[in-house]
């Protein structure tokens, strides 16, 4: 369980022809054990924030405090956007990579990974290579790889973006079930307002680049959450529209920015 406090966080990329301001004055607090979803137009800096949390980038301004109480467990683990599992490793090797990186011996790795792989329906595929798997199965491996390290913060960057709608629904249900057993702090990035409302405790809507927090929406659906009844509820439909009202202007601005207007 952990807590994240970002105060006026900024990130500039100076590499290109002209510097890009990805994040400015990004202030957000994520409570411990919270499932926090970030939505916003393309290029608004959601992924940049996540990469800063994963320590793949360093912020160029502001402060970030990540309170992780348990020094024996990794602070973060990331489920990446595209298929990020290694093509040259079998399913079980892939899922155990995070443990391997932490120096866990092979026997112990297998003992911890196998039950989780069975739980996500990959028990029969432990020795398969990724090219033999469907897109959904690959993302399950990626999720297992992150979960098995028992991170104190789980970072997910549009993990279901490449899946078709039906598989996406299935994976969302599985994730809700898996998460409700552990209640790890989660930062979850998505383009889908529906997905954010189904999964999250709070939804953070961001502005167009440079990204700031525009508005935070509390999600009223109870836990343990039944995604079916959420989808069927009137509140859900209204919240999707509310969120869109908040975001539409930003998406239009981002689009204008892309066209160089």
């Amino acid at each position: 369980m952990a807590e994240i406090v970002a105060e006026r966080l900024g990130k500039r990329f100076d590499g290109g022809a002209r510097p890009v301001e990805a994040l400015t004055d990004f202030t957000l607090k994520v409570r411990q054990g919270e499932f926090c979803c970030l939505v916003g137009p393309s290029g608004c800096g959601k992924t940049t924030f996540l990469r800063i949390l994963a320590r793949l980038e360093t912020p160029s301004g502001g402060t970030l405090e990540v309170r992780v109480p348990d020094p024996t467990r990794p602070a973060t683990a990331v489920v990446f956007q595209e298929t990020s599992i290694f093509p040259w490793m079998t399913v079980i090797e892939n899922a155990a990579f995070g443990l391997e990186a932490r120096g866990v011996p092979r026997k112990e790795r297998e003992r911890r990974v196998l039950p989780l792989l069975r739980k996500v329906g990959l028990g029969e595929f432990t020795d398969a290579y990724p090219h033999q798997l469907s897109g959904g199965m690959k993302q399950r491996v990626s999720i297992a790889r992150a979960f098995v390290t028992e991170p104190q913060i789980l970072l997910m960057d549009e993990p279901f973006a490449a899946l078709d709608a039906q598989n996406r629904t299935l994976m969302q249900d599985e994730l809700v079930a898996l998460w409700e057993e552990q209640r790890t702090t989660v930062v979850f990035i998505t383009h889908s307002l529906e997905e954010a409302l189904l999964l999250g405790d709070r939804v953070v809507a961001m502005t167009a680049r440079p990204g700031r927090v525009k508005q935070v929406v509390d999600v009223p659906f109870p836990r343990p959450r039944n995604t079916r009844s959420v989808r069927a509820s009137e509140t859900y439909g209204r919240l999707v529209v509310d969120l869109w009202n908040i975001l539409e202007e930003e998406v239009m601005r981002a689009r204008a920015g892309e066209q160089g207007i």
Binding site: R51, L56, A101, R102
Partner: peptide
């Protein structure tokens, strides 16, 4: 690049 990010995010050593 994404494979290197994965390795780094899990804190893998340079040798690994």
């Amino acid at each position: 690049r994404v494979y290197l990010d994965v390795a780094q995010s899990f804190g893998a050593s340079r040798a690994l």
